[in-house]
Design a protein around this nucleic acid. Structure first.
Lengths: 205, 205
DNA sequence: GTTTGCATGTAAACCGTTACATGATTGG
DNA sequence: CCAATCATGTAACGGTTTACATGCAAAC
């Protein structure tokens, strides 16, 4: 992996999309909340930011190792007898610096790949029925995501708050995500009504 | 590349994210509109779906070659004297079938990685000033994207329509994207007001 | 005269997913 | 008894980005 400090910053020219060292910084971010194992981090992903970032456990474990070899995190083994041992990671001072640097660096221009929209774009090639299936299942997925976020919100309310400032921003992102999903739902429902409208003309290919 | 028909469909379990043959299908989609060169496709990306999918020219060229070796597209060279020659691609019958198959296949569960939200999530670790910078520049980026979409919309209006059904869905996606961006703008402005609110308590780390 | 546009390609590096691998414990 | 949870890893593969490479013509 490329060392995380001393970023070459690849010219910024046409760079887009995920990748280029975001995951390792996110791991630093999690370890900034409290020391964790790779397993903890995976479950934390799923219970917090999974809707806009996630990683497989294999990627998390290897990235933690790489961060350790760069000196940004340090680990110790917690021995357990009834369960597998845990390798607990925490930030080093260099890791804290790297985290603060990332947080203050501007977010590079990006776009998010969305296969759903890409497919819909070409749906003039197929029948209305197919398009409506895509819209319907998208609507369903949006509703499921909204339910999932509601669950996360409930969890937040029942959790002891050690650092309220951390919580404030986590809730801000939650609000953001919820609002955009609600907008998404509204537009999708509108599109479905439009396609179902009997006064519309063409329908087959 | 894995052959595009006869998809193994990798278990659907935890799969998320971009990848797994979306780009080649999108290329088939573009060639379904009209025969194009790699260069044409790149400019079409930028003028149509760039905000939810894009690819570098190198990836487009190599993927077109791969599609040709699978028999889904065919190419011929257009010789030019004052400009470099063009390699014009068009769908084969197998390619048309593969396109229709993709269009009717359900979109797999997915999430979109968003470094901006991931960073904001951890912004409790840094000062309000830094967080506000991120929100401000996000707002600016959203406005630029809205302007860009307005330009695309104007282009659509001045274009001869050969296949109105294709246009209908392209406009549907455009409407969708515009509406979500407007919602995004609203929430971001609201978050900025909230952080700037002088009755708020904590502000430094 | 330097930048932009046209037009196509190769190669290296990196990021991310899937599959493979192990093994005890707890709950239904 | 079977599934899920805890817990950590390796290896293979494929997708994506970046850098390297070329060369003429038109526009500023």
């Amino acid at each position: 992996m490329t060392p995380i400090d001393s970023q070459p910053i690849p010219d910024r020219g046409t760079f887009h999309g995920a990748g280029r060292g975001t995951l390792p910084r996110i791991l630093l971010g999690f370890l900034g909340i409290r020391p964790m194992t790779g397993y903890d981090i995976k479950t934390t992903f799923d219970r917090s930011i999974a809707s806009y970032w996630n990683a497989s456990h294999s990627q998390i474990y290897t990235t933690l190792r790489a961060l350790e070899s760069e000196g940004l995190v340090a680990s110790e083994i917690i021995y357990q007898d009834t369960r597998p041992n845990r390798r607990l990671y925490q930030l080093t001072q260099a890791g804290e610096r790297a985290l603060r640097t990332w947080l203050s660096d501007p977010v590079p221009d990006r776009f998010t790949k969305d296969e759903y929209l890409a497919k819909l774009f070409f749906c003039g090639e197929c029948g209305d029925k197919t398009a409506l299936q895509h819209l319907d299942s998208h609507l369903q997925a949006v509703n499921e995501q909204l339910n999932h976020l509601a669950g996360i919100r409930r969890e937040y309310e029942h959790r002891a708050v050690r650092r309220p400032r951390l919580l404030e921003f986590q809730l801000l992102v939650l609000d953001y995500k919820e609002a955009t999903l609600r907008a998404d739902r509204e537009i999708t429902e509108q599109a479905i009504r439009r396609l179902r409208d009997p006064t519309r003309t063409a329908q087959a290919i």
